[in-house]
Computed example of a mutant assay.
Amino acid sequence: MSDLNSAAALLRSINGKLARRLRESAPPGDLTWPQVSVLGYLVREGAMTVTELATLEGVRTQSMGATVASLQTLGMVQGAADPQDGRKTRYQPTDACLKLIAANRAQRDDWLLNSIATQLNAQEQHTLLAAIPLLQRLADQ
């Protein structure tokens, strides 16, 4: 059991380090990390209200309102009346936002591909590919 404890702690640490390296490989440009986080939710989950976003981020609605307003000013999100409750506004990413995110992801993918190709030999690459379904299973639970 001790080996599994050590492996879990090491995997968590490695995952965090890899996530930081990926973030560093494609910085958000003029966006803050809270703005990037909000855009990630909107792209993955679809249109949301400020209240829904605040709940997901664990911040006050007023703070999220300021973040969303700044994203609107930058042309990254647009609001539309909620079809079920016209008093609410649901925000979604703009085309400019989606292009920025696609470029950012491509930059991170390029960094990771280059790192795998240059830092791992053929056998290590094969081992890494074989581990991906296992890591996916852990991430999806």
Rank of each mutant, 00 (worst) to 15 (best):
M1Y: 10
A7I: 12
A8W: 07
L10T: 10
N15V: 14
R20P: 00
L22S: 05
E24D: 13
S25C: 06
A26G: 03
P27N: 09
P27V: 07
P28E: 07
P28L: 05
P28C: 10
P28T: 03
G29M: 03
G29L: 06
D30E: 11
D30G: 13
L31H: 04
T32V: 06
Q35V: 01
V36Q: 00
V38F: 02
L39N: 01
L39T: 02
L39G: 00
Y41K: 00
Y41E: 01
L42S: 04
L42K: 00
V43F: 00
E45V: 00
T51Q: 08
T51A: 14
E52Q: 15
L53F: 06
T55H: 04
L56H: 07
L56E: 09
E57Y: 02
E57H: 07
G58A: 03
G58E: 05
V59E: 03
R60C: 04
T61M: 10
L71M: 11
L74C: 09
M76S: 13
G79H: 15
G79Q: 11
D82W: 02
G86S: 15
K88I: 07
K88F: 14
T94N: 10
D95V: 04
D95L: 00
K99L: 09
A102M: 01
A103I: 05
N104C: 06
R105S: 12
R105F: 05
A106Y: 08
Q107D: 09
Q107P: 07
D109Y: 14
D109C: 11
D110E: 11
L112W: 11
L113F: 13
A117S: 15
Q119P: 01
L120N: 10
N121H: 12
Q123W: 10
Q125L: 07
Q125K: 15
A131K: 03
P133Y: 05
Q136T: 14
Q141N: 10
